[in-house]
Design a protein around this nucleic acid. Structure first.
Lengths: 205, 205
DNA sequence: GTCTATAGAGAGATAGAC
DNA sequence: GTCTATCTCTCTATAGAC
């Protein structure tokens, strides 16, 4: 399954909105605005204008502004969990699986769906506590993919640090790339960036 | 110079407000509130209540709410640059200097001044562009301390990845600890956490 | 499903008394 | 230097016409 096929399967299962529909288009624009200006500084008027309607019309699709934020986050996790699982299945060795995860997460953050991933990380506090709990449940599935790979590496003796700590450090390091890495810049490619991360990490020999 | 002496020297130079004075107390509370609720969700009424005055009285000390955010950031950089420089001066080898920097930054983030460091990282977008430029100049001094140590390590052949990329990855990884690391928890100490970061990193042998 | 119009709440900031 | 009182603006959300 390639990226487009994964997306289509998720749309068919109603886990992700069709980006061609009204809801999908709004969520895409919302993710971009939330990332650029932050959730609090983005007004419902901004959101409506981005899809060419009046602010009152938004509330036909979503009951509250916060519901939009939550939808962005939920759909982002569904999509990226699917992408992550596919990436890890293809790799054959422990180290290759780790590399595949790093590559996939860098792509999620800096690729087309990157706005939404950044929102997930940096707008967490703007979500109500009940919504946070809901999104956290979905996020746990995503995190488990990472932890399984890291725990296997540790068991093989390829990793000396604690898998939980390693994952958390990588979460911070990889999500932070959105603030400085510019894939268009011609300099470092996503593969090159992945190489750099792997080169930083210790694998006992 | 220990931590208290460094702070006193900065207060004497008017680079950091005395935490016993009105301005210093407000900035301390502001940092805590901005970290917990975010800058946008913290009202001037919240800020005033935290130091026991009415919201109108705030504007005798600061012209705008944003000026408070900027002051938090500026004083935080001054303090932590001084702490970082002191930490690196004490270490004797390249790897020891890197360890000292990691330890110092983890302490800045998770110690007493941690709220302010988190504000610096996560509320950046709330600062006006002109203020951003000003704070960025100060931040560059802090970053240069890191880059000098990493470049020396690279020259020694102790580091295979690019120093700029390594620093950025560490920025993300270390600042992210504020979201999950709980020093009081009894589990991992700051030294233990530093060990984990060092254990993750590759130093060619 | 989108429009216009607006309700209702809360925000940052100001003015003048003390 | 802090108070009370309040101005003005902007925000989210609602109501009802089309």
């Amino acid at each position: 399954m390639n990226q487009a096929e994964i997306l289509n399967a998720l749309i068919a299962d109603n886990l992700v909105s069709d980006p061609k529909g009204a809801r999908g288009r709004l969520l895409k624009e919302a993710a971009r605005l939330f990332r650029d200006k932050g959730y609090e500084r983005t007004t419902v008027r901004d959101l409506a204008a981005a899809v060419g309607i009046q602010s009152g019309s938004l509330f036909h699709h979503f009951r509250t502004k916060e519901e939009i934020l939550k939808a962005v986050m939920v759909e982002t996790i569904h999509l990226n969990t699917a992408l992550l699982k596919t990436a890890v299945e293809r790799a054959q060795t422990g180290v290759a699986r780790l590399r595949a995860l790093i590559r996939a997460e860098l792509e999620s953050i800096n690729g087309q769906t990157g706005e939404a991933m950044a929102v997930l990380v940096y707008e967490w506090r703007s979500l109500s506590e009940t919504s946070q709990a809901e999104v956290l449940k979905l996020r746990a599935i995503y995190e488990q993919v990472w932890l399984d790979v890291l725990a296997a590496l540790k068991a093989e003796g390829q990793l000396s640090a604690d898998p939980f700590v390693v994952r958390r450090m990588l979460t911070g390091a990889l999500s932070w790339t959105i603030t400085w890495y510019r894939p268009e810049g011609g300099g470092l490619s996503l593969d090159g960036l992945t190489d750099q991360v792997m080169a930083m990490m210790a694998f006992p020999r």
